[in-house]
Amino acid sequence: MPLKNRCMIIAFSLLSIVCCLPPVGLTANRKLKVVATIPDLASLTRAVGGDLVEVSSIALGVQDPHYLEAKPSYQVRLSQADLLIYNGLSLEVGWLPLLVQGARNPRVSPGAKGSLKASEAVDRILEKPTGEVDRSMGDVHPEGNPHYLLDPRNGVKVAKLIRDRLKLLDPVNSSKYDANCAAFEAMMNKRIKAWEQAASVLRGKKIVTYHKQWEYLADWLGLEIVAQVEDKPGIPPTPRHRAWLVTMMKEQKIKVLLTANFSPGLATAKKVADETKAKLLSLPASTEGEPEIKEYPDLFARLVSALAEALKE
């Protein structure tokens, strides 16, 4: 038999064996390794999992999670994970599929128990397009606005979803996950009330944002976002849109222009704010977005106080 044929037989045999091998299961008596795509999800997992989990986040708090590069080193992290938690709604579509495929870890492959889409916990997705979408509309997310974790009430829902998945993967410690989650929920509910009270002055106030990022925050606090600096999501504004925006902001006496501190359009936002004499608020949009924001609740303390301070008059 020619060498080439022999090699082909060996290759097909290898492929068949590899495909038929069962996925590697979880090993008992060790911490669950959890990889979250964004720091908010990592923080929620820490809150629920406590010392039973080892959590890391792929994106940093100062990074725009839309535009990460699929570094092979992230694949290494995912290759060793028991659980992958991702935001969903196409937030990570540009890089997560490459990582999951490159990680070669059946435990976190799509549909596996170790793959959790956090958006499943959220019952009210904002800005879900009702008609056809195409790229002439900019970076539109066909499933809706993916920044739902900027409403802390959604954070509580996601924490419960994470609790359920941790219990499924590690049933021995179910009671601990239940207790941790209950404590987190109680703490958050208390703090949410306090934040809502502090933010009562914001209700009905109009602001402009750079990107369609703050809709859930505004929905929670009763802020009215009247326009974005970006004409279309993810696309820098045209001069015509900018001129319209400046006029509109002056007419409506918009006092605050809100942008994420990682936004690529900070310079543009600053120019618009200068022209309209609005206050430019460049704020963290994620846990670890500033050194003091170590956990998820810290983010809202910072956002509410900054907005209340800027819009108090």
């Binding site: 290759a11 492929l15 590899v18 495909c19 091998l21 590697v24 290759s79 070669r104 059946p106 492959s109």
Partner: peptide, 14 residues
């Protein structure tokens, strides 16, 4: 085709 479920960090492409 590329394998998705191969264990132990292996991946076969054919």
């Amino acid at each position: 085709i590329t394998t998705l479920q191969a264990p132990a960090g292996f991946q076969v492409r054919l």
